[in-house]
Design a protein around this nucleic acid. Sequence first.
DNA 1: TAGTGGTCTAGACCACGAA
DNA 2: TCGTGGTCTAGACCACTAA
Lengths: 238, 238
Amino acid sequence: MEEALLDGRTLKHVAVREYVRDLLAGQAPGSPAPSERELVQRFGVARMTVRQALDTLVSEGLLERIPGRGTFVARPKRMPSAITGFTEEMQRRGMLAESQTLLARREQAGPGVARALSLTEGDAVLHWRRLRRGDGVPVCVEDAYLNEVLLPGFLQGGMPTSLYDALAARGLRPTWAEDSIAADVAMAEEAALLEVATGAVVLRHSRRGLVGDKTVEVSRSVYRADRFTLWVQLGAEG
Amino acid sequence: MEEALLDGRTLKHVAVREYVRDLLAGQAPGSPAPSERELVQRFGVARMTVRQALDTLVSEGLLERIPGRGTFVARPKRMPSAITGFTEEMQRRGMLAESQTLLARREQAGPGVARALSLTEGDAVLHWRRLRRGDGVPVCVEDAYLNEVLLPGFLQGGMPTSLYDALAARGLRPTWAEDSIAADVAMAEEAALLEVATGAVVLRHSRRGLVGDKTVEVSRSVYRADRFTLWVQLGAEG
DNA sequence: TAGTGGTCTAGACCACGAA
DNA sequence: TCGTGGTCTAGACCACTAA
């Protein structure tokens, strides 16, 4: 029976690991995993091999070992804030996210954008300006600048609703972000778009989004202070 | 010579691990670690034991294994924002942090603070209000509410400069934080303390700080918008 | 007492990188 | 060719938990 589980091509600890992962998929926290010796019997491998498989699942946070008791499905750990965009943020709050493209074109990078994208001033960048609504009310004006070299043909074929979905489809969703958040007042143009008075209080949010060492996105957003509060979770342990 | 390194009380993989950690402390990224077989010889242990020791250091991010080459000091990974307080934040910016205690007393928890600290309304909490300066200029008014049960005698013996240092000394430095950030205008009392006009733009920052499952700190800070921008790094990969 | 995970041994063969 | 880390074996003894 063991032969059905080991095909000779897959590494044994990987086979055991994926077997256990499938077995416990969807199981409630606290559900017991097979014991190490049971997996040794089932797969006909050494115990160290089973431990190597389980070690991986423990470090992933899927399993939890309790000496003298056994191995169990761990309760999900608290996770720090993911790197999300407006669309996901609104969905998380149960609000309807809408976007109206005000501008989508190639431009020459100004000094600030060029530095943030690790380009030279005057290099071509994609500039995408949107008015973003939550439940129909203007919430935010966002200017996103994208590295054109990484996104050939991005402006063709219609703009997507979610920038991060579009980046993810190209394997370029940021895995690292450097954000700055400040309070300020709205300039005339911003105020008109956000349907507030010039000088109304706003929250300014800038982001530099990287995947690996490459900056793919620089954005500057201005939020109506009366319609938006930023939430951030920090830390790892739970 | 091996006997000098193993005292029989310490677990062997721990002895090997700490030997390697000390050996490589302060070494530049890319510096080679002893090979696994070299450590086997030096400590007279099995190779699996050495691998267990090195596995820990690899998962800590200190070491990096390169198959066929060896094991090396890893370059430091980018880390998400730590959970810091005002003092550390100012130091990070190269500014002098000063604090003036406006209030430090036991109070009965109001509904919001009680809920955030997982207490019952009316339970005793420690309330610490400070005016915080950076390079001598008022930057922030912070109200911190602390769970008195976790911090017996905290108000005696003089207030520390850094709340987070004081919590760390008790093993209660938050490992998880839930923050909210919003733009607003200063109320009269805040404006007077911050030396701005009533109605001036401010950044409001609330935090719930936990260690494990216990909430140890709830704070509400109001920052002068012209003196403070918040910075956050998100993500894990580098 | 029986079962669990934690630690440890003394080997083995492999793919890969550098010389 | 030689050294490296990656994988794997077939056992062993320990402390701890639960019945």
